[in-house]
Nucleic acid binder design. Sequence first.
DNA 1: CAGATATATGAGAACGTTCTCTGTTCATTG
DNA 2: CAATGAACAGAGAACGTTCTCATATATCTG
Lengths: 368, 368
Amino acid sequence: MVVRNKATIADVARVAGVSTATAGRVLGGYGYTSDEMKDQVQKAARQLGYRPNALARGLITGKTRTLGVVAGDIQNPFYASVLRGISNVAEADGFGLLITNSDESRSKEVQSVELLAQKQVDGLIVTPSDTRKARHLHNLLSMEIPLVLIDRAVAGLSVDRVAADNIAAGEQAVRHLFEAGHRRIGIIAELVEDEGDGLAAFLARAASGDPMEAEALYPSWQRLLGYVRAHRIAGVAVDPRLVFRAGSYSAEAAQVGVPLLLGLSDPPTALFTTDGTMSEGAMRAITALNLSIPRDLSLVCFDDLDWMSFMQPGISTMSQPRLAMGEAAARMLLERIQGENCPPRTVLLPAELISRGSVLRRVLDPAV
Amino acid sequence: MVVRNKATIADVARVAGVSTATAGRVLGGYGYTSDEMKDQVQKAARQLGYRPNALARGLITGKTRTLGVVAGDIQNPFYASVLRGISNVAEADGFGLLITNSDESRSKEVQSVELLAQKQVDGLIVTPSDTRKARHLHNLLSMEIPLVLIDRAVAGLSVDRVAADNIAAGEQAVRHLFEAGHRRIGIIAELVEDEGDGLAAFLARAASGDPMEAEALYPSWQRLLGYVRAHRIAGVAVDPRLVFRAGSYSAEAAQVGVPLLLGLSDPPTALFTTDGTMSEGAMRAITALNLSIPRDLSLVCFDDLDWMSFMQPGISTMSQPRLAMGEAAARMLLERIQGENCPPRTVLLPAELISRGSVLRRVLDPAV
DNA sequence: CAGATATATGAGAACGTTCTCTGTTCATTG
DNA sequence: CAATGAACAGAGAACGTTCTCATATATCTG
């Protein structure tokens, strides 16, 4: 049973005294075989320590039972949870998972996709780092390799997609602050790629109620859009100076924003951070400035990270269903792999407001 | 260049007007080829959108340039970082990464290893969930599949291994508390599998200075061993009632321990939590009990999680180099894959005490 | 009972690469 | 100038499976 050199179907067949075809049928579980043969072959297989070679199987079937995933950064709790969701359904179906990091770089993403394609994955789940230039993704489609996008869309690429309902979530977060009596609300957002004509123009268009092609926007821009909408509903004009653009996906970049916003002549009384990384950066700044939440500053974050529930006070946040997002994406991908042929689907999962202790109820100044 | 059906070497050869052998040599980068042929073949390949099939290549070479990893849970920050470290070096060498979760269950681990082996990974990195029964791992060795262990060892399995120096780290953490004047120090540890004859016997043996086979102990037992050694150095007897055994790798289990320890007639003034999950559980309890750190309770954790640095006050902790652990493991594995044949190596990376504000300096009662 | 169908087995092709072997050319060498 | 060997190209085997096809028997079906 413990054997040094690996046994093949031919070896098993020889020992069992049958043809390789029969042995293959028994071990591969296809075609017809008699119980007698089954026993014989299985006994030989056990004896030789036979282990099927998935490469050979994949080569001939054209299926590897492996999914490829291009995540931004496994280490980031967002991707870690999404991956876990994907892993859960992949594992349940006996699929393997080939995982790479893009670090939000287009060239690394292209490289990853190429690697995964060469390894003949049956399908891919990608969080695209560029919402416009995506020839490598279009290429997959033309090769008929199923593709599911997570968290972001790509303009002109109509494939299955799952994301949080970022606009609604952003709106709800900020509305929550308005309802607590806040009027000057800062936002700390990534906003890395320029959506066409710059932040000012974006804010103007959003404030005017222009519906825009919000679907293909980056999540942070969508959440900003929600921020603007909440202002419109509250009848409060958006002050562009309250919008801090980190410009990169890092806590350090976000950290800079807090003292900047609070240093304004008319500083915000509350902050909305648009993702886990921005939230972490904001918290670092708040600690560094020795501010007390919610006395000195109210805070609503995005994405429920573990520490938010055991900080004192707890941090109110828009919780997005990361695990469910991963699971939904994997399920959609598996359906496509199994031949599902319906038009591309978009699954928008709602984020949920978890209200903890980081928002101060303000009595409104009647003069305003 | 954009082609629907995938092109093979034979297709490229036909278009280029050469033999498949020559086309293969050009595209595979082996053997002799003239520059003329190279141009011709590469042009044809580009034109057809040729993409090498790693399955076919792997089938014949016996190498897949893919590593398999069995982690406990990708979602856990510890594994997420370790994975990122592995990914960094794998990617630099052009290796793919097949990742699975074991959820610390032996049967899932066995299943994962089997899956990865069938997919013909060139080597495996495993965080074994059982330090004793590991036939599946011995099996890998007999098949000559390189294996590297992370975080834990397996008794009787001598392979490359990388881990934190848990005993020294545990000792340093607790010594730090002694030096701050604490005498009754609680420990919240996983201690899931019974190390032979139970906790009481373990404590007795450890306190007597018995060296034990500490190498093959679970990390939490090793950190407990450090805890005991620090007591010996400080000349303080270990009170078994101060050792809380969570019994499972979950924050909920850890959370229970805090009120239990604090409810003792002679409660601890400080706590040592032996990993990130235990720390999270302890923090939840501390928040629920509305305790103030370090006034009501001092705390030293293990593993530096992001929130520990921006809590108010910051949490002192033993920081283990998770990324470096993953990188070291991957490097060792790649060396083995490239034929390195030296005897099994053990890399113990030191953990570093990061002193923040969670430890109160106590003035010692002269009566004690 | 003829004909169809389900069940069972084996021989050998096929998947897309790399490897081995044979053969040719051409420059170098003593 | 014969001998050597490096540089190159092609034919075909090999990797370990599954697939197709041919064949044979047992079991239904009308």
